[in-house]
Amino acid sequence: MHELTEPNDLRQWVVRSFSAPVFMLGLVFLVLIVSELKLNWAERTVGAYLVAVNDDRPESGAIWEKGRKTQTARLAVDKLASDREAHQRMARNAGTLNEVIAALTPGQGVMLSAEHFRELYQKIPSGIAAEMISPFDLLRFTSEKRWTRAYLEKTADGLMVYLLEPNNQVLRQFKVAAATLALVARRSDMASQSLEDLASFQNRIYPAERFFAALASLPEEDRRGLISQPERLLEVSGQVTRVGISDEAVAGFVDVGVEIQAGSQRRVLLLQGQDWAVWRLRSLLEGKLSRPRAGKGSQEAYSAQ
């Protein structure tokens, strides 16, 4: 047991230092060092331990940070792309120009094929459509085979339309005012009510016979200016009983309300006539009239003299 007691003098210290247990301890230490150098057991042990606890450790450091940035960036790009695709999908499925416009917020745009744009264009009353761009220009662009797409961009005060060549060079660009767009929107309105229910027509409601008799006395150009597509009226089932003319002119057009009686039901079909043609018809119906006077903004008001 004396080995466990503290040496009392220097000789005992020296003897104890060179004793077998100390030698064995040194040997063990040496074996550990050599085996580590040869077998790398310390590195392997630490490495194995770290592999075992890998999943409990944080995703930190440059590579993970980069991964997070990649993930965020991909989400952002995905959103951009899917928003754009949604607009394109909506545009492809749109049956009218207004459906296209309704889905856009100012600054947004959609790309349509030239064919699709032509289809939408054909659904706009010819007078309004011609105000946007002449159908003859569209025919020319189509025949030249340079026009492939149309880009429609909603702006704060209307719509910008760019007719594009394959390389996105603009063949023609034109702006469609918000007021014209409003007209396009109302074009297909079919109110299930009578003309008296629509305030803007209350001052000028004419029996159908009188209206169409006056219309028939106008030259063909004036009649087309007033009702650009009369065949559409013929398509409607029921009897035209009365016609109203609106008090207001918007962007060079005046609403013409055609009241149709089908059985016990009355409906009003809204058409847009060009103001100069409406003015000529009214001069026949009511005698000499003043030219329409300018109203607030883009609106103008008519008044009989």
Binding site: N54, E59, G67
Partner: peptide
């Protein structure tokens, strides 16, 4: 020190090729 330090060591991605996945 070892156990404290390795506690917040960054996790190593698996597989290692994931480090070059950024498009």
């Amino acid at each position: 020190f070892f156990f404290v330090s390795v506690g917040d060591l960054p996790r190593v991605p698996d597989p290692l090729s994931r480090i070059i996945e950024t498009p």
